[in-house]
Amino acid sequence: MQSETSPAVGSLVRLRGVRYVIGGRAIFDGLDVDIRRGEVTAVMGPSGTGKTTMLRLITGLVTAERGEVLVDGEEVSRLGRSDLYRLRRRMGMLFQNGALLTDLSVYENVAFPLREHTRLPERLIRPIVLAKLHAVGLRGAESLLPAELSGGMGRRVALARAIVMDPEILIYDEPFVGLDPISMGVVVRLIRELNDTLGLTSIVVSHDVHEIAAVADRAYLLSGGKVVATGSPSELNALDSAEVRQFMQGLPDGPVPFHYPAPDYAAQLFGARR
């Protein structure tokens, strides 16, 4: 196992000793993660390990009980509302279900951040929006409403919206869930292309091992509130740890048990009636 505790020179996002508790259960306890500038970093792990929660910590949607969450050297939890908003303008986030504003057309959804944050006239907004829609291949869908889009299309529109303000960090929350193989391929290609052509830093939360292998420079495997392994996808595949092997090969039982903790089955069926 390769541990990553030395401060990486080019790290844009840094989590150190993060503890986060929800409903009395510690989701994270001593989480250390470094997201390097210019790379596509994947965060993997079984469902319920708090991958999405980690994104919410980085974006300041929730705050950690203990530990540091640094984005470009700034401690997110100490920022006031206006500073937090200033930081968020440098980030784009793709939500699991797209989270498009349902009462606006595709075009208006992508134009939304521009209209809210700039005073650009329509003749400048239009070429920007069309360029971003073109980048995700949906220039022709500009007049459709979110309800008229398929899941994959909706996610691509959301991606266009996420990049319309030219962010430095692009965050993807489960971008592959529920997509057909073709849409999946499109999204995989887009993540890589956008990262390289726009000079972004990307964070991809997912548990789709094969897609991650195709797109990520580095991957973190989370389990039990900690990082259990980190490295390039091929390095992770080669690791000889039961936890990593179970996850990477999709074995039903292992360190993550098949059964939710329960009393003894036979005793529950035949005896011990309270």
Binding site: T59, L61, R81, Y85, R86, R88, R89, M91, G92, M93, F95, Q96, N97, A99, L100, L101, T102, F112, P113, E116, H117, A158, R161, M165
Partner: peptide
Amino acid sequence: LMRATDQIAALEMMAVDPVRR
């Protein structure tokens, strides 16, 4: 429903105050 479908969180992420907007 806007909250349930993450639209409110998306506004927050776009640095748009949902209370204001």
